[in-house]
């Protein structure tokens, strides 16, 4: 006996659908604006990454690795990029990189301030937590449906879905980091007559930075894990090749595109971890160990 036989079925899905319709009717103009902005960001970033010759972009990325960490990471990155080029996935990789960067930057621009707010106000923290749980555990395909209805296909629904999925660690790590700052040091700020804003800038954010940077790293990794789903809704990049390889049962194409995702992921992970290690507090802590 199913629930419908008892006529007790909760029409939750219908309500959500009606809600989405209402959203489109009310905020149609706003969504158009969002779409225009996201398209502009994505296109210009992809232009910057994909227009110059491959070797130039690869060298710049390797130079960033060198600056952040050292020559080992730079050489490793260069080898990886040559492999990506060798399997003819370079343009796709740059499209994916553009999508991941746009989505991550926006997710962080929302997530870090929200995390700071949540750390300073318990009520905000309590309100935000279930929302983040929902965003992280709701299967991505499910909220892809309204996103596609609103933004149709292409890079934009991919970016929006990625932002939603990747937002949570940015908020969580920031809140954790700020709350984890030694209470006495914050008290010292107050005791010497600092303003709350200065305490945030001079004490809380610098001391929480290693944790916040770990959040940045997680945001980027989660964004990268969404590329296949973004590919399904028609965003250019490695994801689309993976999806088409799946539908055509093409092992070689699937592996090549997949490997390119892995190379990109390792590069971004090592780069952001290295940046986290270079924060002033992390460096100061290393002095003790030395």
């Amino acid at each position: 006996m199913s629930a419908t036989d008892l006529e007790l079925r909760l029409p939750l899905g219908d309500w959500v659908e009606a809600g989405v319709d209402g959203l489109i009717a009310t905020f149609g103009g706003f969504f158009d604006l969002v779409k225009t902005v996201l398209v502009a960001c994505f296109d210009s970033l992809e232009l910057v990454l994909a227009t110059p010759p491959m070797w130039l972009v690869a060298l710049v990325l390797a130079a960033m690795a060198f600056a952040a960490k050292g020559w080992k990471l730079a050489v490793g990155a260069l080898v990886g990029f040559v492999v990506v080029q060798g399997v003819d996935q370079w343009d796709n990789a740059m499209a994916t990189l553009a999508l991941v960067l746009v989505a991550s930057v926006i997710a962080l621009a929302i997530g870090i301030p929200l995390g700071i707010w949540a750390a300073r106000d318990d009520r905000v923290s309590r309100a935000v937590r279930p929302v983040l749980d929902f965003m992280q555990t709701m299967p991505a395909f499910v909220y892809l449906i309204p996103v596609v209805i609103i933004f149709l296909t292409g890079a934009v629904p991919g970016i929006v879905a990625t932002i939603v999925f990747a937002l949570a660690p940015g908020v969580r790590f920031t809140e954790l980091g700020i709350r984890g700052v030694d209470k006495e040091v914050v008290e010292a700020g107050h005791a010497f007559g600092s303003t709350p804003g200065r305490i945030l800038r001079q004490i809380q954010i610098p001391l929480a930075l290693p944790t916040i940077m770990a959040g940045v790293n997680q945001v980027i990794m989660l964004a990268l894990s969404m590329v296949v789903i973004a590919g399904m809704v028609g965003a250019d990049g490695l994801g689309r090749d993976v999806v088409s390889a799946l539908s055509r049962v093409n092992v070689s194409l699937g592996f090549e595109a997949g490997l390119s995702v892995v190379i990109l992921a390792i590069y971004l992970d090592r780069l952001t971890s290295a940046l986290a290690d270079r924060s002033p507090v992390a460096r100061a802590m290393r002095v003790t160990a030395a």
Partner: peptide, 18 residues
């Protein structure tokens, strides 16, 4: 008042590590 009149020394020093 805290800037001019009263300062504090903390149990665990409360220095800025960076």
């Amino acid at each position: 008042l805290r800037q001019r009149r009263v300062s504090m020394v903390f149990q665990h020093f409360a220095l800025l590590p960076h």
